[in-house]
Design a protein around this nucleic acid. Structure first.
Lengths: 143, 143
DNA sequence: CGGTATCCCACATGATACTG
DNA sequence: CAGTATCATGTGGGATACCG
């Protein structure tokens, strides 16, 4: 990314902050709220993994548990409820024996999916550089 | 978003999951790692707000504290160190009295900024719908 | 001014056991 | 199969005081 891009990015962001009296910018309350809102949604340990798994189509509770290594029943249930409450996923239970329950992304959830995958892509693009810089920092700092 | 978009989104994401034997997809370890990595970076309470504030240009420690309502000195220092270690921001201290320290986004940080702002924009676009759905869920569930 | 050091706690998550 | 209920715990983060 060149200097010009950096300038453009700053200009774009500057539209999101408010000039307050004096030399210092401050977050508009609502913008900070939006950031907090989306972080509450996907900032936890499991939401994004669940959303990503559901991208493959409707899937049952037990298959979600299999697809997401390390998740506990408790956290799977809790996170699913959270996502359902927010309208990101739908829960459909079929009155059969044995019981069957399927979860699926809503359109809202799908629209969020693309955005968080962009974040994951950023991580994939830069994780090598990140590791290099962390190692350098630790070397300079720790010894 | 229409059905066609939804299908496309699913197709895009399906490239990120691995077909395992049997009917169920599972996260590739490295993809889950990328998600965890970026969540560790920006999933906390203050990182994104700091990054967004720095978008306005280099800024001093005390001005950061003013620009981000509610942050404690401890968390400001801690989060700045974290972001610096990852290479998202630079710290420059000027040997004057009184001391002056400025923080600025690196190009890496700026590239992340655009992506997290997309998330904030998603939140801004959908927060009304989200609130509606949460209220409906609570009504249906709670009473 | 720009931090550290220390104490403290709420809460997110995990483990385990039980149920319709 | 698809959950609940209960207990245990690690830690993210706030408050406060102090330091170069």
């Amino acid at each position: 990314m060149g200097t010009e891009d950096l300038r453009r990015a700053r200009t774009n962001v500057r539209a999101n902050v408010r000039r307050v009296p004096g030399p210092c910018a401050q977050w508009k309350d609502e913008d900070a709220d939006f950031i907090r809102e989306v972080l509450d949604l996907v900032g936890d340990k499991w939401s994004v993994l669940i959303i990503g798994t559901l991208a493959d189509g409707p899937i049952r509770y037990s298959h979600l548990a299999d697809a997401i290594p390390g998740i506990s029943q408790r956290m799977l249930t809790l996170t699913l409820k959270h996502l359902q409450r927010t309208g990101l996923i739908n829960r459909t239970s079929y009155p059969e024996v044995p019981p069957r329950v399927e979860y699926a992304l809503t359109e809202l959830g799908t629209s969020l999916l693309s955005t968080v995958l962009a974040l994951a892509a950023w991580s994939a693009d830069h994780h090598a550089e990140i590791r290099r810089r962390q190692a350098a920092y630790d070397r300079d700092t720790g010894g």
